[in-house]
Amino acid sequence: MYEPNDSSSAPQPISGIHACQVLMACDELNPTLEFLRSTLGLRIDAIFPADNPSTAMLSGHGLSIRLGVGLANGVKELRVLCDDPYQLPAGARELVAPNGVRIRLEASDPPILQPETVQELVLSNLDEETHWNVGRAGLRYRDLLPARHGGAFIASHIRILEGGPVPDYTHFHKVRFQTIFCRKGWVRVVYEGQGEPFEMHAGDCVLQPPTIRHRVLASSAGAEVVELSSPAEHITVVDHEMLLPTTATHPVRDFNGQRFVRHVAKSAGWEPWRIAGFEASDTGIGAATAGVGGVRVIRPAGEANSRTQTHNTELCFFYVLSGRLEVVVEGDRYTLTSDASVTIPGNTRYAFDRYSEDLQLIEITLPDKFLIGD
């Protein structure tokens, strides 16, 4: 008997498979057979016995059905993916076949649903009691925004424990905004239209514009990244056809209003930041998204300035890369050290008060530009 954790006795792939068939029961064959044929456009592949048919096999749209009189444990519902079922009245998006099976019409390319942002002050510190979820491909996920700002955002600190090849596949995400910052080690990735695979090292980051195909190829042991996406729940779609790298390169191609960005830390420039006493390395993501979101690395430069300020942004997220920082929010003081993060809601009074000379922060804001007040 095969045991799930026993790799030595794992079942071998079955060859010669032509289709996978689902069972569907009915009391009378012809009414449901005609419904599936005329309404859903399925074709009849076989029907028997000839003198008094009780079973039919149908196929179409990637589905194979064995429809039979008196079958047990047949499907009770089918989801039919259509171009735009939302143009139909709500009552027309669900049909009932003569055998009682429900047919639900859903979009094959569902739109991005962007929940209304619900802001709150969120602090996350890394310590011995920090919980890490085991995610896809054995990656460890630390949740930096548990309430998701009402579902509008997700922020994760991700660890790759074992180095080497990554069992990934060509895919893309349906998102409004998505950025990945390499925290430690290196990760080798490849992107549609962006040339040969490249390595992201600590301090590098990318903007993954909506629908750009990409794939993670390999990583160093112990590599870490910080990822922020909007909305929190978004669809990942596998592309079975595209091979990466692509033969053609399109470095400035528009992907749903955004351009791919690869920011390399070792060649970055620095300019004064919006808070006096600091300077920022702008990744160029603000320009590439036409202002949807911005990403910068912040460090002290000159005399400290602890002036209180507010902003009207939808998201203002800081992640400590190194050093120590004290943040005063509405009169309450919080100490942040390496790998801590803070998300400050709009129209909230805050100040950077005391910090070490080796302080470095990631700043991620949506939108890229916003109003600032004292």
Score class of each variant (00 low, 15 high):
residue 8 S to A: 09
residue 13 P to M: 03
residue 17 I to D: 05
residue 19 A to S: 15
residue 21 Q to P: 00
residue 28 E to Y: 02
residue 32 T to W: 04
residue 33 L to M: 02
residue 36 L to C: 10
residue 37 R to T: 08
residue 40 L to A: 05
residue 47 I to Q: 14
residue 63 L to Y: 01
residue 87 Q to E: 15
residue 110 P to M: 06
residue 112 I to W: 00
residue 121 L to E: 10
residue 125 N to L: 04
residue 133 N to W: 01
residue 135 G to S: 06
residue 138 G to S: 06
residue 142 R to P: 08
residue 142 R to V: 10
residue 143 D to Y: 02
residue 147 A to P: 00
residue 150 G to P: 10
residue 155 A to S: 13
residue 156 S to W: 12
residue 161 L to Q: 14
residue 161 L to I: 15
residue 171 H to K: 08
residue 174 K to V: 07
residue 177 F to V: 04
residue 178 Q to K: 15
residue 179 T to N: 00
residue 180 I to P: 10
residue 198 F to T: 11
residue 201 H to L: 10
residue 203 G to V: 13
residue 206 V to Q: 06
residue 206 V to R: 07
residue 232 A to N: 05
residue 232 A to L: 03
residue 241 E to K: 07
residue 246 T to P: 11
residue 250 H to Q: 09
residue 251 P to D: 05
residue 252 V to E: 14
residue 261 V to M: 08
residue 275 I to F: 10
residue 284 G to Y: 06
residue 286 G to S: 09
residue 289 T to R: 03
residue 292 V to D: 03
residue 298 I to E: 06
residue 300 P to M: 03
residue 300 P to E: 04
residue 316 C to Y: 09
residue 321 L to I: 12
residue 328 V to F: 00
residue 329 V to P: 02
residue 330 E to R: 10
residue 330 E to H: 04
residue 332 D to M: 13
residue 348 T to V: 15
residue 349 R to H: 14
residue 351 A to Q: 09
residue 352 F to S: 02
residue 354 R to N: 11
residue 356 S to G: 05
residue 369 K to D: 14
